[in-house]
Amino acid sequence: MKRIGEWVPALVVFAVVIAAWEGAISAFHIQQFLLPRPSDIVKTFWTARHSLWPAGWYTFKEALGGFAIGSGLGIVFATLVGRFKNVGTAVMPIAIAANAVPIIAFAPIFGAWFGEVSPHSKMAIAAVLCFLPVMVNTLRGLQSASPRQIELMRSYAASELEIWRRVRVPTALPFVFTALKVASVLAMIGAIVGEYFGGAFNALGVLINNGAQIFDFVTAWAGILVASLLGLALYGAVAGAERLVVRWAPDMRDA
């Protein structure tokens, strides 16, 4: 666990950046609609809380659903591909190629499939965004098991299932958590961008988008602040779970 003292430099840099931002706006007379003051953003974050916070929660639930579905399917798929080698050689190159596709471009199409206003289309986008990194990383983890450890298990007459349980899965876990952290961020992006193409009136993406269109940039910025805090919360939850589950991974060791 990092000690509090290690956070001080980051906090100082953060404070300096915010102060410079605030100061630059006064010094150069930057117009409010181009770049609002941080203090105004925080003020709006509070005064508009009755619309912003529930909207954030609504979007967060979409992201969470997409994260759970996409990551879950990614892990299941990786397990199947890892279990049956032939499936892997057939599927992996396609999966890696598909990873380069800008999936966010499918957002309008998903709207048509799952309902433009419905939260399901956002969940679907978030899920698709999460799926590939989780699948690819989990599979890589399952395949990184040490041949020596497997040989040792063979010397104990271990079955394939036991080798999975005691060697492959524990080896894969740090890879899985790395992927889940990436996916937690992608899920929030997926949900918000999905809402830019249409969503419920009380969704965060819609609020940000509308704010920008009527030059109410402070509200848009406050919405982004809400989105960032929720994204951080999800990331933090995954990182916390990682700390509990894979204490042995090299970057978790506190020996």
Partner: peptide
């Protein structure tokens, strides 16, 4: 040759 211990 290497201990082949399980880190977890």
């Amino acid at each position: 040759q290497d201990a082949v211990l399980f880190d977890w």
